[in-house]
Write a protein that binds this DNA or RNA. Structure first.
Lengths: 337, 337
DNA sequence: ATGAAAGCGCTAACAG
DNA sequence: CTGTTAGCGCTTTCAT
């Protein structure tokens, strides 16, 4: 019942060596004679000594913890990335401080600051948009930062993503090939680069390649919620639109269920293809066709990249560092063959 | 471009006071003459000084960070609790170190240790089971611990939950009232106290109150996955079971969809009621009836309780501290009226 | 109201 | 291979 925490000094005294030696055996750095090493280890065991990482952090200027900024853990897309991040972090002996931001700039800025004051060794940022203020605080931070599943329109920060533009272009083309003339593009906030510069661009490119006129009425801006999907569906149908490319699975589920609830058969009368291939694509009836993204891997690779940068293993960290992972498309039941 | 971080010493010098005074204005503790306070604040602003929380943690023995152990962030049930935890933590100026355990004792033990070595001020634990080893490490930890959405059969740790037994008993009774004679109980690992001692108990109590014979063949032990639900359904149907009480929403969705896929009408031919009221209960067709739990609140209340204990605001922290939040039942479309 | 000084527990030269 | 000695940046008595 050692209430008082035992320190390195206690171990040193008890085993008749200096604290430097204890530090050495604990860190496995530099050589220590096997016999004294064993002696120290025994005392550590006996006293149940556990190094104080805070003291270590102060002395070494490394905390072995990284900050992870996430819009909302409750969102399966981001949660999947987070899982990949944490697993790789654990693999490299890092811990993560997880902070929800709701994708709000103000919260993001605040949390970046507290993370920095906690001396994290690096930050993984997930967010809808890298605003100028965010970009500035990234620049001022003296720790490396990597984006996961998030794009920086200015490409000023290393990131890992898929090629959203190509992916959306692919599925839009497929829908066009199914003879759909009017195809909706249903996304989140169009002020966000990921939606405007990448996904909408892909949609537009597909249209123009097939000589289809772009119609602004067919693009729907939402909050990417199930409810939003359900609510905009009437409007979609009223315009005689026959297919939709959707950027979020919950959102897509809302549209799908509205159709079903209104006796519009999917995929016979209406086709839907969504973007994130989260678990819910399998749970709806019909199951949803989707772009497939290696969600876990995006997080994992981002964390791996961060460890490399923190380690100085990367020649030029300002160099091009936008890794694009492979995406795919899975045709389930919300699209025709 | 202040590459070198500015320290408390720098602002002390720059503003012509001692570091003790700077510390005082930063912490707002004890009195400082308004004029000198302003002077210091200005310098802090000018130098863009940000207190080093690690140094502060070492000196004060408080890190204002708490550890959160979670089986899997990717699981919406736990993610919802985590969101409640983080929000309240932020409200009280704490950060959370989030660690996934997969509910595996070995990982849990390991992570408890690293959390403790990082000097967290407290821990919120979510897990399926408090094993003797876990209980021991909790006892040895010299920081408070609170369970969220998790039960300790020995009631040795403060916790916040709902009354799982009563909830399951309620819904089972309802199914019995719908004239179902054979009702399945589909749960996760029955070695876990929450399933065996609480939920199964509730199921049994409902049966016995209605003079229905308990039949072991009607209880299904699973991994609580969608896939498991889908796979056990044939067995359920083969036994002429006409309703199921399920402990997890994905699991329930699996059963529901299997029924639908096999032309068994829910709820006409088969009734299902699930337990967690996560988002997917609204996404399936028919929508699933469910026990409703205040998921976010369970996390939030757990965190609030932890802050109180950390603060010493609770008289006797060894006293009965099992808070039970209100649950409800919502009848959607997978049960008859 | 403010300053001086002693740590907090550990790492990291620097000696030897 | 091992010990000595400075700090790391801040909080916290104890004086004044």
């Amino acid at each position: 019942m050692n209430k008082q925490n035992v320190t390195i000094y206690d171990v040193a005294r008890e085993s008749g060596v200096s604290m430097a030696t204890v530090s050495r055996v604990v860190n496995g750095t530099s050589n220590v004679r096997p016999s004294t090493k064993k002696k120290v280890m025994d005392v550590i065991e006996k006293l149940n000594y556990r190094p104080n990482e805070v003291a270590r952090g102060l002395a070494s200027k490394k905390t072995t913890t990284v900050g992870v900024i996430i819009p909302d853990v409750t969102n399966n897309y981001f949660a999947s990335l987070a899982r990949g991040i944490d697993d790789i972090a654990a693999m490299y002996k890092y811990n993560i401080i997880l902070a929800n931001s709701d994708g709000k700039e103000k919260k993001e800025l605040k949390v970046i600051n507290t993370l920095l004051s906690k001396q994290v060794d690096g930050i993984i940022f997930m967010g809808n948009e890298i605003t100028p203020a965010i970009r500035k605080s990234f620049k001022d931070a003296n720790v490396p930062i990597v984006l996961a599943g998030s794009v920086d329109s200015k490409k000023t920060v290393p990131s890992v993503n898929i090629n959203y533009k190509n992916a959306i272009e692919n599925v839009t083309s497929e829908l066009i090939n199914h003879h759909n003339k009017k195809i909706a593009f249903v996304s989140g906030d169009l002020r966000h680069s990921i939606n405007a510069d990448h996904r909408l661009k892909g949609y537009c490119d597909a249209l123009s390649k097939h000589d289809i006129q772009y119609n602004q009425n067919y693009v729907f801006e939402t909050n990417e919620s199930y409810k939003d999907g359900y609510e905009i569906s009437q409007n979609i149908v009223d315009q005689k639109i026959s297919a939709a490319v959707v950027t979020d699975d919950s959102l897509a589920a809302g549209i799908l269920n509205w159709m079903t609830d209104h006796n519009i058969s999917v995929p016979d009368d209406f086709e839907i293809i969504t973007s994130n291939d989260t678990q819910i694509t399998e749970m709806t009836r019909p199951k949803m066709s989707s772009i497939t993204q290696p969600l876990y891997d995006i997080g994992a690779v981002a964390m791996r990249l961060l460890t490399k940068i923190m380690n100085g293993d990367i020649e030029d960290k300002y160099k091009e560092n936008d890794v694009l992972l492979q995406y795919g498309v899975i045709n389930r039941e919300s699209t025709r063959k």
